[in-house]
Simulated assay, not measured.
Amino acid sequence: MEKTVLNFSECTLALLDKKFNLSQILKCEILENWLNQDAEISSFEKQLLHRIQHKLILNVHDWNETELIQNFIGPVFAFVDYTTKRCNFFAGRYFSGIVHEIELHGKPDGMIASGFREPEQPYFCFQEYKKSMEQKGDPAGQCLAAMLVAQEMNEHQTAIYGCHVIGADWYFMLLQGKEYIITPAYVATRDDIFDIFRILKALKQIIIGMLE
């Protein structure tokens, strides 16, 4: 009998493609607009990014997942500052939903959602892994599973944004209907760190625009 309940941690891209008839695409105007959207980075923010990048370069091969989150990923999201009265960044919050009669559930490493003290409607899902050599499961698949639930919660009214990180490599994602796209890696130990930060700041503008 086909399993009708799946934890995000069980999900791979291959499994999701098969169960939900999804297609990975190579071009998407919404994604391109997001990746190319302007967002100012102040000189102070650049200094902060250089400081945590230096720590990343020295430690990325040795940090465990918690250390990577606390020393690098967490500060990056904190510098962007998604906290408003109408939305916030949440970490490790359980949520679930029914997608094509299959229940998907779990605790993504992070999400940006409407709501202040607790998440309501998620618009962005995030998954982190220390490094590829210690990878357990499929971080892209786990992130996409959470994005599928977010899409159902939003009644397919908006594209869902996502990102998964493996060590220093950041991959941005977008889901719309049955199509999804994953960018090549942005490498945080290089100058890509400024693009990563700009893209995350642009995401804040996009989500605030959704809530207006």
Rank of each mutant, 00 (worst) to 15 (best):
Pro119Thr: 03
Pro122Asn: 00
Phe116Gln: 08
Thr66Met: 01
Cys125Ile: 15
Glu40Asp: 10
Gln47Asp: 14
Ile73Phe: 11
Tyr82Phe: 15
Cys87Val: 11
Pro75Leu: 12
Ser96Val: 05
Glu103Phe: 04
Ile69Trp: 15
Phe79Ile: 15
Arg86Val: 04
Arg93Phe: 11
Cys87Gly: 00
Ile98Gly: 02
Lys131His: 11
Ala145His: 01
Trp63Asp: 01
His100Gln: 13
Asn71Phe: 07
Gly115Val: 04
Glu118Ile: 08
Ala39Tyr: 08
Glu120Cys: 10
Ala146Val: 00
Phe89Ile: 07
Arg93Cys: 08
Ile57Val: 15
Glu65Gln: 15
Gly106Arg: 04
Gly115Leu: 04
Ser43His: 12
Ala113Met: 01
Tyr82Thr: 06
Ala113Trp: 03
Phe77Glu: 12
Gln70Ala: 11
Gln127Gly: 12
Gln121Gly: 02
Asn59Leu: 03
Asp62Arg: 12
Val76Leu: 15
Arg86Ser: 11
Glu118Trp: 14
Thr83Val: 11
Leu144Gly: 04
Gln142Tyr: 09
Gly162Met: 04
Tyr123Gln: 04
Tyr82Ser: 10
Ile57Trp: 09
Asp81Thr: 09
Pro139His: 04
His54Gln: 12
Ala145Leu: 06
Gln53Phe: 06
Asn71Met: 08
Leu49Asn: 06
Gly141His: 01
Lys85Asp: 09
Glu120Gly: 04
Asp81His: 10
Gly92Glu: 12
Arg93Leu: 02
His156Ser: 14
Ala150Arg: 03
Val99Ser: 05
Glu45Met: 09
Cys163Glu: 10
Leu144Trp: 06
Leu58Thr: 10
Gly137Gln: 02
Ile41Trp: 06
Ile69Leu: 14
Glu103Asp: 03
Thr158Met: 05
Arg86Tyr: 11
Gln53Thr: 11
Gln151Trp: 03
Asp138Ala: 03
Ile102His: 06
Gln151Ser: 14
Gln53Ala: 06
